[in-house]
Design a protein around this nucleic acid. Structure first.
Lengths: 220, 220
DNA sequence: CGCCCATTGTGACAATATCACTGAACGCCA
DNA sequence: TGGCGTTCAGTGATATTGTCACAATGGGCG
């Protein structure tokens, strides 16, 4: 597959001078990851910046006790700065990025990254904005986990995962990981939702029946 | 008060060329905040980078329901990048920085910040490292809030707040804010600690009696 | 068909959060 | 110095969420 001019896809590269973009096209490598593949993790810290051309990467954290929580998702057109962060901080962390769909990414080596940050204000702005967005995502997660009700959070989660689709293919355990809680909790809340006619479920599947009520629950 | 050459105090400025440092000394302003003063907040977003010369800034987040949680502290020798982050992301957030002691800070205007990031690799590294450290701090908070036991977290918190001191001057409510929980919860756990001989307390004061046991609890 | 195993259901119990109070300590000021 | 108001701490009842142990169910596949 030929990507064509991927520099057209990103805020941070679109407005660069033609000469710089040509240099980028030459310097960067394209990578593909199949669904379910670990893109980065504690043992696998890439020393480069990742641009996501297509697909979704789910970034989650695993606690000592083995429980997971989803931190955020990197979508096409965004870059994944967490790896860079951890690389620079040289501290232990246990976040992991998983290809949630088939993923096409462009990898920019550290040296080129450095040079771009130094020389191109537009790129610099892009990188800082990417950091900032993640910081704010994490603030949101903290707020939810510390102060949010589980039913409200689950309603939000279902709506977000479904997007426009009528149903979601997922297990209770996966939903529990989204919210950083236990499977049993999800099972009970989903049963409650079902009794109230908000959803229908069968093995590995949740159908959104009454979006309006879910929405109402999600904002409360 | 004359700060002298504050560029000596920071990783990111210490190794800069003399000429650049002189320019910094000329460009930056020194600010002081008394204890308890709000350094930044939702209505008060500075468009500059803050270098903390002396004191401590406590950064916390307030939920819609009015409950607080402490995210991290900025100590002398560090810079506060969250404000920069929020400025760049142009998104709503509700973090606030409070001077926990009297604070002396150097404020570097946006334009000088930009130029330094562009021209000085050492400064660039410093800034990215600062971002990274905060990201990792937040990951830690998420892990604690989502998966940590409250007694363990409180033990950690007490040890961290006390440092070398034998006692801490703080209310149960303040401790609750540290951990993002309710005052009653702290009251009960502290009573339990007291019964077990780990601490002694009186109004507005917690004395660490058995550090070894607290430490043991903190790591579990 | 029957077996395996991932998934889901369930009850009991523990931990934490919430609510509505009461009581205690302190600072202030007459 | 004694009252008085305010902040701080203690407490019981109840709701929510998390943990544990195990049972039941459904689907895929040999």
């Amino acid at each position: 597959m030929n990507l064509g001019d991927w520099t057209e896809l990103f805020q941070g590269t679109r407005s660069l001078p033609r000469s710089v973009r040509d240099r980028l096209l030459a310097a960067a490598r394209t990578l593909k990851y199949p669904t379910g593949r670990v893109v980065f993790g504690p043992d696998n810290v890439p020393d480069s910046l990742l641009f996501l051309v297509d697909g979704t990467i789910r970034v989650s954290q695993t606690s000592e006790s083995g429980r997971d929580i989803v931190l955020y998702r990197v979508e096409a057109g965004e870059s994944c700065v967490l790896t860079t962060a951890c690389m620079l901080a040289e501290e232990a962390y246990n976040a992991e990025g998983l290809a949630e769909t088939d993923v096409v990414a462009v990898v920019l080596p550290r040296s080129d990254f450095d040079r771009l940050v130094a020389e191109e204000p537009a790129f610099r702005t892009f990188v800082f904005a990417a950091y900032s967005r993640r910081l704010i995502d994490l603030l949101r997660v903290i707020d939810d986990v510390a102060f949010g009700r589980i039913d409200v959070r689950l309603a939000q989660c279902l709506l977000a995962l479904a997007k426009d689709a009528r149903e979601i293919l997922t297990t209770h355990q996966q939903l529990a990981t989204e919210l950083g809680t236990a499977r049993e909790v999800i099972s009970r809340v989903l049963q409650d939702f079902q009794k109230r006619g908000l959803i229908a479920q069968s093995r590995g599947r949740v159908a959104l029946i009454d979006r309006a009520k879910l929405q109402a629950l999600a904002v409360s």
